[in-house]
Each structure stands twice: as C-alpha cells, then as structure tokens.
Design a protein around this nucleic acid. Sequence first.
DNA 1: GAGATGTGGTTTAAAGATGCAACTAGATTT
DNA 2: AAATCTAGTTGCATCTTTAAACCACATCTC
Lengths: 149, 149
Amino acid sequence: MKHKSNESSTCPVARSLDVVGQWWSLLIVRDAMLGVKRFSEFERRLGMAKNILTVRLKKLVEEGILRVVPASDGSAYREYELTRKGEDLLPVMVALRQWGDRYLFRKGEEHSLLLDSRDHKPLETMTVRSEDGRVLGVHDLEMEIVKTS
Amino acid sequence: MKHKSNESSTCPVARSLDVVGQWWSLLIVRDAMLGVKRFSEFERRLGMAKNILTVRLKKLVEEGILRVVPASDGSAYREYELTRKGEDLLPVMVALRQWGDRYLFRKGEEHSLLLDSRDHKPLETMTVRSEDGRVLGVHDLEMEIVKTS
DNA sequence: GAGATGTGGTTTAAAGATGCAACTAGATTT
DNA sequence: AAATCTAGTTGCATCTTTAAACCACATCTC
C-alpha cells in the first residue's frame, strides 16, 4: 500500500520526511551538493532505475528543492540544480554524515570525508545548542505546540 | 524489487540512510526521544501498521539504536529505549526539524516547537562550521576518500 | 478466579512502490 | 545520414506497506 503521508502533521520532522524521506531523495540531494546536474550522471553515480530517478527528480523539483535549468554547456539538454531551499538541507546532510562516520564504519574501511575547501580541514562536529551556546542532549529538551508567525 | 542496500557504500550518508532511512524509522526515533517507550504507544502516536512497527523496532534494536528493557513500572512488559547511538541522532533530528520549520509551514499553522527545557527558549539554528568556526555553505566544501583510523 | 481488557505481536490479502529491461523521440557527434 | 547520447516512458515481475483479522499472554476488575 501507499506510504502514509504526513504533509499536514504538526511536526516539522514528519513533514520534512514527507518531502525528502523517500528512498533515493536525500542521495540525489547529496550528489547535487557535490555538483551533479545531469540526469545521466545521477543515474550512473547512484546506480538507480531511470523510472524512479524520473519520479524523484520530478518530486524534488515540485517541492522546490531542485530547479530545472538549461544546460550550462550550451547544449539543448536540461540540468538540475539546487535551490536555496535545497542547499539549506546541508545541515541535515552533514549531521547524517557525521553520525554515520562515527557509528557505521570500522577501522581501515574507506570512506568519504567532507572538508572545508579553504584549508582542507575537517568540519566542526555538529551539536544541538541552546540560544546561549550550551550543548544540549535529548534530556534537555521539551516540546510545545505553537502557531507559526 | 527490493530497495538497494548501501551498507557497504563508502559514503556515510548512504550508510546512515540504510540504517535509519526507511519509512517510519526516524519518526520512531523522534518519539523515542520524547520519551515514548511502549509498542502500543508508538503504534497509537504514529498511527502505523503494527506489523511494520514490529519490523522497524526489530531493525532499530539490531542496529543498536534502541534497546529492549523490562518495563519500568514493574509489569512483565517490555520497553524500548534509546541507546547512546540512538540519542546521538539528535543533531539529525533537529536539523531536519529546523529545515521543515523554515520551509514547510505557512503562517498561522500549528506546529510543534522544540525548546531548551532549562529556560524554555528556542534552540540555536544549526549550521555547518569549519574547525575555526566559520559558517560554511554547499560551495565551501570538498570531498576526499580516506581510510578510517 | 473468571471475564474483560491491554500488550505485543503474526498472518493474510490487496494495492502501491521499486527494479529491470526494452523501447523511444529528440539532440549531438561523426 | 548513421550512430550515439540524453532523458525519459512503458510493461512486467517482485517487494513493501497497509489494514484487518487473529492470537497468546499479562494484567485488571469484580
């Protein structure tokens, strides 16, 4: 059956997952962040079925995460590039990456690492902080329901 | 066909999604972070099919994100609680939440908000930073393949 | 202590999602 | 003009999700 939609959930996590939580969606965004723009390059790098790629790209464009632009090489083909909304998924991507880095690799395994391109050093580890800069854990949080301003 | 596994990908994002990227998995973790512990409470809050919940909980336990413990009320039932590995998904959760907060709600819509429980103030917005504290965007990054130490 | 209810599942069938291979129309290269 | 590349679409087989029924055991109520 169809996956249950959470598009009208009051929880932003649920809504976010509704938009980028499908198989492949975040991997497409990841590759887009690395500069991949063409259908065939997504297909080749991700090794995914073309029909699914078509559907995912369409959805990401509809959601305003990618946009279609004329090819930058002057040909008549199209390219997909991240919008601001899409680029703003970077913290999600890096958080996911750092968690995987820490827990899902054994010693000696090859893995890709993200670096600051200015000085080629690793990034700061992402943490959740209070307004005044204290690092917060799961037990330092509470939830409230409010209306968006 | 079966979803293609990325468990041996060299990309930590792909591996992370292999572990927590299935439908419902992150929503279960989210609720676990809010203190939900019982099968029936996950079921009720998430409104999901029980068989899928069974499979997801089993996988999350296998992956070491949740662990099964005797019920805290002394009854013979079981409870699920986050391990350290599971709690460390907090930055992912908060990043996802903040993105959704910004882009997926219109004015006046109700939504849940996470607060620092000490002073009941909103959290700092998560950003990707270099080692020396500069905020980095998609275009300030590069990738390298290394062996895990 | 018997019956009702709660807990934590398993089983089944229908429908949706995914993967693979084959096909295609237009653009580009040779 | 023919071959190839690009970005898909279509059809089919398989897998996953859902909803609903069913079940064993634990706990609560009287």
